[in-house]
Amino acid sequence: MGALFGKSKPKEEKHQITEQDRAVLGLKQQRDKLQQYQKRIKISLEQERAFAKDLVKQKKVDKAKLLLKKKRYYESLLEKTDGQLDGLERMVNDVEFAKIQVQVVERLKQGNECLDRMHKMMSIEDVERIMDETQEAIEYQKQIDELLGNTLTDEDETAVLAELEQITQQELQNLPDVPAASLPATTTEDVELPDVPTEDPGVTKPCSIGII
């Protein structure tokens, strides 16, 4: 190759190619070779068939038979390679899947370690102590509340009640007035109501349409 497109090889980054990558490449290379082999066999197959046809035309049936036998043999080879291809592809998938599994486990391990470290930062005793202290603090607060609550004198109580009364009064004042004018007379007497039926309606048949 000339200088123009030059073969300037970049530094090989070996570390990015793992053992698994090599294994996968090997498997895939083998697969490619098999596929090429299959192509070759398929071409031979067609040729043999064409030859056989020609031979039959020339009335050389024995030779044609021989060729067909050869063709049959090629076909069996093709079937075998199909099986091998299948095996190879499965292996590639297995390796790739295992690789992913390893990564998943790796991540889980990381997560677990992180959890562990965080757990170490807080021991059960600590938590118990903290919870106890919190409980104590709550109770302490309650006591204070009670003490404070009880310190309200009767005077305060009346003041509270008075304020409450005041607020309710205000609320009442804000209510709309009762309308002063009387409502226009209604004409209830004129409305004619249907009479109550005197006969028994008997058995009703609800929606019997469509049901036999």
Binding site: D21, V24, K28, Q29, R31, D32
Partner: peptide, 8 residues
């Protein structure tokens, strides 16, 4: 992140 052959 996977390997391909050039032939592929």
């Amino acid at each position: 992140n996977t390997v391909c052959t050039l032939y592929e």
